[in-house]
Design a protein around this nucleic acid. Structure first.
Length: 560
RNA sequence: GACCCCAUCGUCUAGUCAGGUCCAGGACAUCAGGUUUUCAUCCUGAAGACAGGGGUUCGAAUCCCCUUGGGGUCGCCA
């Protein structure tokens, strides 16, 4: 190849569809995408479903949705909305079996690979023994010494077998990594690893090398956990006379406690609770049929719906690790993108807030941080708050409505369009996420008899203390509000403000807070005039009366 | 355990490659004041780090070595 010839940049993200897209994967995809975009290249999505036991079609669909939601589009790959397609498919490994087999055959016929007949159990045992003896386990190459007659006999018997790659020599393998520089792996650290499983599927190591070559991938960008594996990949590439792509291994994302943030964290959290509480039988119908299978091995993971159902039954909060978790929690995709990009990369000059375009224009591997980063939810939340506050009211209302449609349908059902719009707008200034205001807005859709007056310090203070007290203000306000014919924010405001001017020395808070509690049951709501307007006169009057009814109860407990 | 990677405030980082302008800058979190009709915001200020030890150098956060600490890998998972 001519050294000066421009090489087309082609990057790929190759997840295994065994769950939802988690934030680490999302960041890898983001870097792949930005790097390709900036250089006029292509970003390819490939589904690495080489594990039949763990792959599911639904999971791979979830990945596509998550990626699209983040605004990461792919030029080639599974077709979804306006993304995907391409000439280098199929983009599912499970549909490329013939291709892998032809290369396996090639290696086999050239003596660069060989069949082995040990069972997984035998290997497991050998590994255990090696560890017990404080030895590093390496496959002993027993199968390499099998004579052809024996092999033929086993094959004729249909004995399960795998294909192993034969390490060519003892030359150290050096990897040039764009993040880490040059890394050398001693071949003593490797052994004749499996490249074709007994079920006829290739292992990841083999599939990834073949696919990257055939799909013309120029830059392999992936998590640091693959750094050691890369030596294997280079060896396979050499054996097959493939070229070496550029490598870039980015560091991992940690949980706040310093452990690796992993797609298995939810599963781990559930197992911990089950163990702690000594739960023997399935506590939740949804998981009944998977229960014993799940308990059997840490490799067996419940799918996300079942895990969520189990978590609900057990009343445990699952850690937020998936892109979809943050979507539900009301984070804006552009904020997640921004934050994720910053977690492992920095544009310098104290720049922190930026959009996708800026990322594409400025992203480069020489500014990728080598050390792992902890995922800091507080900072993400602060970013989200800033972004939400920077939205126009119209934009916020639209997003709030979309979110509501997906996750809080009851608000759409119970409020009129006008009420809904007003509530959304009233919630804008106090929203940190698209989701957090729903919880404190429940009283808007509750029936009057559902309102429970909290007997907390803040409530008592607002209702019982002062001269006149909050209850006294409410008593006086009730007839005044009843007389308002046009129940709009202006009229409510002038009545309440005039009252406060005459009876609370102009201190609106003295009057607003009792009203707030009367209509909501607690001390938290959107701005008071908006709140009263949305609720409507009848509801407001009715709830003030209800509140006044608990007066004696509240007062009698006030010194307790 | 072996191998690989990494190391600046509690956290994310700027500064490191081209050593002096850094008694180390920003952001989040924290704390103290202030604004505000609640919650949330918002404003002002404070505290807070070059893991340790050796070198090299006139000079080291920056270069080298060791130690320590953290992480990853060691699967018929990816």
């Amino acid at each position: 190849m001519n050294a000066s010839a421009p090489t087309t940049v082609r990057t790929r993200f190759a997840p295994s569809p065994s769950g939802h897209l988690h934030v680490g994967g999302a960041r890898t995809a983001l870097y792949c995408w930005a790097y390709a975009k900036a250089r006029g290249g292509s970003f390819i999505l490939r589904i690495e479903d080489t594990d039949q036991k763990r792959s599911s079609h639904a999971a791979s669909l979830g990945f596509l949705e998550d990626l699209r939601w983040l605004g990461i589009d792919w030029d080639e790959g599974p077709e979804f909305e306006d993304c995907g397609g391409g000439e280098f498919g199929p983009y599912f490994c499970s549909k490329r079996l013939d291709i892998y087999h032809s290369y396996i055959d090639k290696l086999l016929s050239e003596g660069k690979a060989y069949r082995a007949f040990e069972t997984p159990e035998e290997l497991q045992k050998a590994r255990k023994e090696a560890r017990a003896n404080k030895q590093n386990y390496r496959y002993d190459r027993a199968a390499l010494n099998l004579d052809q007659a024996t092999i033929d006999k086993y094959l004729a018997q249909g004995k399960p077998n795998v294909v192993r790659f034969k390490l060519p020599n003892d030359q150290p393998v050096t990897i040039e990594d764009k993040v880490r520089g040059s890394v050398t792996v001693d071949p003593q650290e490797l052994d004749d690893f499996v490249i074709l499983k007994a079920d006829g599927f290739p292992t990841y190591h083999f599939a990834v090398v073949v696919d990257d070559e055939l799909m013309n991938i120029s830059d392999v960008i992936r998590g640091q956990e693959h750094l050691n594996n890369t030596a294997k990949h280079v060896l396979i590439q050499d054996a097959l006379s493939f070229k070496h792509p550029n490598f870039a291994h980015i560091s991992l994302i940690f949980n706040p406690d310093g452990s690796k943030m992993s797609k298995r964290d939810k599963d781990k959290a559930l197992r911990k609770v089950v163990k702690e509480r000594n739960i023997i039988d399935s506590p939740c119908d949804v998981v009944n049929e998977d229960w014993s299978w799940w308990l059997e091995s840490k490799d067996h993971q419940l799918d996300i719906e079942k895990a969520t159902a189990l978590a609900e039954t057990l009343d445990v909060a699952l850690p937020e690790i998936n892109v979809d978790d943050f979507r539900r929690a009301g984070y804006l995709p552009e904020v997640l993108i921004n934050y994720l990009a910053l977690l492992g990369w920095s544009p310098g000059n104290d720049v922190e807030k930026f959009d996708r375009e800026f990322l594409v224009e400025n992203f480069s591997f020489d500014r990728v941080i080598k050390s792992p980063a902890k995922f800091d939810r507080d900072k993400l939340l602060a970013f989200n708050l800033d972004a939400i506050q920077a939205l126009s009211t119209d934009e916020f209302v639209k997003l709030w409505r979309d979110h509501c449609n997906c996750y809080h349908k009851e608000f759409m059902d119970k409020l009129s369009d006008e009420q809904f719009e007003m509530l959304a707008a009233a919630n804008h200034p106090r929203a940190k996420t698209l989701d957090d205001t729903f919880k404190s807005s429940y009283f808007f859709i509750a029936n009057d008899d559902e309102i429970v007056y909290e007997k907390t310090k803040a409530v008592r203070k607002a209702l019982c203390n002062g001269e006149p007290s909050g209850f006294e203000h409410l008593t006086a306000l009730e007839p005044l509000l009843s007389q308002i014919n046009d129940w709009d924010i202006q009229n409510i405001k002038s009545v309440v403000e005039e009252y406060a001017g005459q009876n609370a020395a102009g201190k609106l808070g003295k009057v607003a807070q009792p009203l707030r509690i009367a209509v909501s049951g607690g001390p938290v709501s959107p701005a008071i005039f908006e709140t009263l307007t949305i609720l409507g006169r009848d509801t407001v009057i009715n709830r003030i009366k209800l509140c006044l009814k608990v007066q004696s109860d509240m007062l009698s407990n006030s010194n307790a």
